[in-house]
Write a protein that binds this DNA or RNA. Structure first.
Lengths: 215, 215
DNA sequence: ACCTGAACACCGTTCAAGT
DNA sequence: ACCTGAACACCGTTCAAGT
C-alpha cells in the first residue's frame, strides 16, 4: 500500500453517509456542468454550490478550497482514462506491436472523446492547480500497463522497455492534448486516430530487436 | 496578407514612442518574473504593475485586461519558438528524413529549454486564456515550415504531406508539453531529445514512398 | 494629454448564529 | 452535530481628480 502523501487537495472529510456521498457527487457533477456551460473564468464556488443545491459553507466542508474541487474532478476523469488503458492493455497481451499500438491509442482516444466538451474543459482547467503528483500517479499506471503489455509482444523485444514506454506515453497523451487545445474538431480527431497508431507502431518497430524478421 | 481577426486580446494601443515601448517591455518582463517567482495564483495585475514600476491605470492603457497580458507574453514566446523552427527547417532542406526529424525536434526543444522555468510557467498559464487563434497561427507557421522542408527530402516522398506534417507537429509539441507538465526534469528532457527524433523519423519512413530503397 | 490610485463589483473563504 | 449565508480580505477593472 502506498503511503498517500498529504497534498492538502483531498476532500476535508471523506463522505461516510449516503447523504454526504450524494452531496459530493452533486458538487463534482455541478463543477463539470458549470465549467462546460459557462467556461473556466465563470467557474465560481458560489455558482457550483448553487447548481449543486448546497450552501457554500457545506461545500467547503467537503472541498477545503476551489483547487480541491478541480483536483477531485480531474482525478475522477483521469482515473477513468487510466482504467480504460489498463483494460485495453490486458486484452492486447500477446499480440503484434502494430495491434498493440492501435489498440492502446484507440482506447485512450475513446476515453478522452466520450465527452469531448468535458475533456476540453478539464484540459483548460488543469493548469490552474498543482497536479504534478496526480499526473505522476496516472502516468505511472498507464506506463505500467503498457510495459506489461509490450513485454508480451509476439513479434518484438525491447532493450530499454521503460524508455520506450515513456516515449510512447508522452507522445500519445501529448498529441491528444494538443489536438484538444486546438479545438478537438472532428477532422483533427479522425487524423489522430488514423496516424497516431502508425507513428507508435513505427517507433516500436524501429526500437525493437525484431524477433520474427531478423535479417 | 491575412486579415487580423479582432480578438480583444491585443494591446489597447500600440506603443508609438520610446517611453511607451519601454513600458510595454517592462510590463511583459514583469509578468514573466512574477509568474516564475510567485506562481500563477499570485500573478495579480497590481503585483505586475508594481514590479514593472507603473501604476495599474497606466498598465490598463496598454493591456485592457489581465488576459491580454498573458496573451502578449505567450505570443512573444511562441513567436520565438516558431521562428526557431522556421530557421531550422530552412537549414535542413535537401537532407535525409532522419536528419530532418532530429534537426526539427532539437530546434524545438532548444527553443523551449532556453528558459525551462519560463516555459513551464507559460504552459501552466496557457489554459487561463483563449489562445485558440494564437495556437492556430503558430501551428500553421510551424506546419508550413515543416511541409516545405519535407518536400525537399532526399530519401523520401509523401502522398499526403499535410497529414504527415500535422501528425509530426502534434506529436512533437504534445510530447514536449506533457514532459513540461510533469516537471521537465533533466532525465525526462534527455530521454525526449533522444527518443523523439527516432519516433519522428520512424513515422516518416513508415508513411513515405521510400525513394532510394524501393524493393 | 497622460498618469494615478482610491473606489467598485465580484470572488474565495470563514465562522457566528441558527436548526 | 450540522448547515447557512453575511462578512472579510483580496483581486480585476474603472474613472474622477490630479499633473
Amino acid at each position: 500500500m502506498t503511503t498517500a502523501r498529504r497534498t492538502g487537495l483531498e476532500p476535508r472529510k471523506r463522505p461516510r453517509q449516503a447523504r454526504s456521498t450524494a452531496t459530493v457527487e452533486a458538487v463534482l457533477e455541478a463543477t463539470i456542468q458549470v465549467l462546460v456551460a459557462e467556461g473556466a473564468p465563470r467557474l465560481t464556488t458560489t455558482r457550483v454550490a448553487e447548481r449543486a443545491g448546497v450552501s457554500v459553507g457545506t461545500m467547503y466542508q467537503y472541498f477545503p478550497h476551489k483547487q480541491s474541487l478541480l483536483y477531485a474532478v480531474l482525478e475522477r476523469h483521469l482515473d477513468g482514462v487510466a482504467s480504460a488503458v489498463e483494460r485495453a492493455c490486458r486484452q492486447l497481451q500477446a499480440s503484434s506491436i502494430a495491434t498493440m499500438a492501435s489498440g492502446v491509442v484507440n482506447a485512450y482516444l475513446d476515453a478522452k472523446t466520450v465527452d469531448v466538451e468535458a475533456s476540453r474543459a478539464l484540459y483548460m482547467v488543469s493548469g490552474e492547480i498543482d497536479i504534478s503528483d496526480l499526473l505522476g500517479r496516472i502516468s505511472k499506471r498507464i506506463a505500467a500497463a503498457i510495459e506489461e503489455m509490450l513485454a508480451t509482444a509476439t513479434d518484438a523485444e525491447f532493450d530499454d522497455l521503460s524508455t520506450v514506454t515513456f516515449t510512447l506515453g508522452v507522445a500519445m497523451s501529448g498529441a491528444v492534448r494538443v489536438v484538444f487545445d486546438r479545438g478537438a474538431k472532428k477532422p483533427m480527431l479522425r487524423a489522430l486516430r488514423e496516424e497516431l497508431p502508425t507513428m507508435c507502431a513505427a517507433y516500436l518497430i524501429a526500437v525493437s530487436n525484431n524477433v520474427l524478421s531478423r535479417k
